[in-house]
Simulated scan of single mutants.
Amino acid sequence: MNDQQGGGEQRDVITVLVTDHREVEQMFAELETMIGAIGERPQTLAEQVVIELVRHSVAEEAYLYPAVREHVPGGDELADKEIAEHAEAEKTMKRLERLEPGDDDFWPVLEELMREIRHHIQDEEGDLFPRLRAACPPEALTELGAKVERAKKLAPTRPHPSAPDKPPADKLLAPGAGLIDRLRDALTGRGRS
């Protein structure tokens, strides 16, 4: 997913994450035109979706949700709900990772993932993001945007449902897992169009 918009100006965290959401939705829309298809393109696109979702969720868990806990009234409950949704989606991604478009379960599992992620996006954009924007100073949102973009570059690219999802353990383990995942991806060609 794109790290910065043209001109090099740093975007705030909400803009960064909404851009991620739109890019994932574009991939979902393309996959929906292929439902039932067998071949390399749906496999590659599904892999790209998983890579982007994992990077996105790791960055959210490391920086967005701690900011929600700190700044938003009722933020602990809100962050816990979002993290629980991530955990469910990671389990679905792990199941999808073991499948290919020719497998009976591939398309149903992918459709389940799309439903989970679309629900999560609707929650974040309709509730969490407006509450965070109202409660957090603009400069803090911009600083969070930079942190999220850096975290995505180091984040794992494969689902790790049993990995810690709360600070500080998430920040300690993500770069190592991310390096190993990127090496595996390079060796296997995973996620390349």
Rank of each mutant, 00 (worst) to 15 (best):
A89M: 11
A87D: 12
E143Y: 03
L99S: 03
K94E: 13
A140H: 12
I121M: 08
D104C: 02
P137N: 04
H86G: 06
E88W: 06
A87T: 15
I83C: 01
D123K: 14
D103F: 13
K91M: 09
D104A: 15
T92Y: 10
V109N: 02
L141R: 03
H86D: 04
L99Y: 08
L96C: 08
L99W: 08
I83D: 00
E125M: 10
K94T: 09
G102V: 08
E88F: 10
D103T: 12
M93Y: 07
L96E: 03
A134H: 01
E85W: 15
E90Y: 03
D123A: 12
R98P: 00
P101S: 03
L113T: 06
H120P: 06
D104I: 11
F129M: 00
C136Y: 10
E88N: 06
A134W: 01
G102H: 13
R133H: 06
L110E: 04
P108C: 07
C136S: 05
L96A: 09
H86Y: 09
E139R: 11
Q122M: 07
L132N: 02
E143D: 07
L132Q: 01
H120E: 00
E125W: 14
H120V: 10
E90D: 14
E88P: 03
E116N: 12
P130V: 04
T92V: 15
R131H: 04
I121C: 04
E97N: 10
E100V: 15
D104K: 13
P137W: 11
E139P: 00
H119N: 02
C136F: 11
F129L: 01
P101F: 09
G126H: 07
A84V: 11
L144I: 02
K94P: 00
E88D: 11
P108S: 06
D127R: 15
A135Q: 03
I83T: 15
L144D: 00
E124N: 11
H86R: 08
A87P: 00
D105F: 03
E124R: 04
G102E: 13
R131P: 02
R133Y: 07
I83L: 09
E111G: 08
A84M: 09
A89D: 02
E139S: 12
I121G: 01
R98K: 15
R131Y: 07
I117K: 00
P137L: 04
K94D: 13
A135I: 05
H119I: 05
E139V: 10
L110F: 15
G126M: 10
R118F: 02
L99H: 07
Q122C: 04
L96K: 08
A135L: 02
L96P: 06
R118C: 00
R131S: 09
T92K: 02
M114D: 01
L99T: 05
E85N: 13
L132H: 08
A84C: 02
E97V: 11
L96M: 12
I117H: 05
T92S: 08
R115P: 00
T92L: 11
H119K: 10
E112N: 14
A87M: 06
K91T: 11
D104T: 13
L99D: 03
L144C: 01
E97L: 15
T142F: 11
Q122Y: 10
E139N: 09
A87Y: 12
L141E: 00
H119V: 07
Q122I: 10
T142Y: 05
E85D: 15
D123C: 05
R115K: 13
